[in-house]
């Protein structure tokens, strides 16, 4: 619901969440699937080095999603 209110003001938002079903249910438009509930930004079972790479890749992907034209609510992987 917060995502939607921020987007209502004209700000482009990417919602990075593992629980994409919830993100869809609360009306987020650009949704990027994250790793898990307790550790959204990297795989909690990986080494710190790999996690750092995963964070960078996920945020890079988030920037791509922000720059993607969409016609309807979309879940990106």
């Amino acid at each position: 619901m917060m995502v939607k209110e921020i987007e209502r003001s004209g700000i482009t938002v990417v919602h990075v969440a593992n629980m994409t079903a919830v993100a869809q249910s609360i009306g987020s438009n650009r949704i990027l699937k994250a790793y898990s509930i307790p550790a959204a930004m990297a795989d909690m079972n990986e080494t710190p080095e790999i996690q750092a790479k995963q964070r960078y890749q996920l945020m890079s992907r988030a920037l791509e999603v922000l720059n993607t034209e969409i016609k309807e609510q979309t879940v990106f992987q």
Binding site: V3, S9, G10, I11, V13, V16, A17
Partner: peptide
């Protein structure tokens, strides 16, 4: 808005 932000990365569970 006070800082002219136009883009947000929103993280959640």
């Amino acid at each position: 808005k006070a800082d002219d932000i136009d883009t947000v990365i929103f993280g959640s569970a």
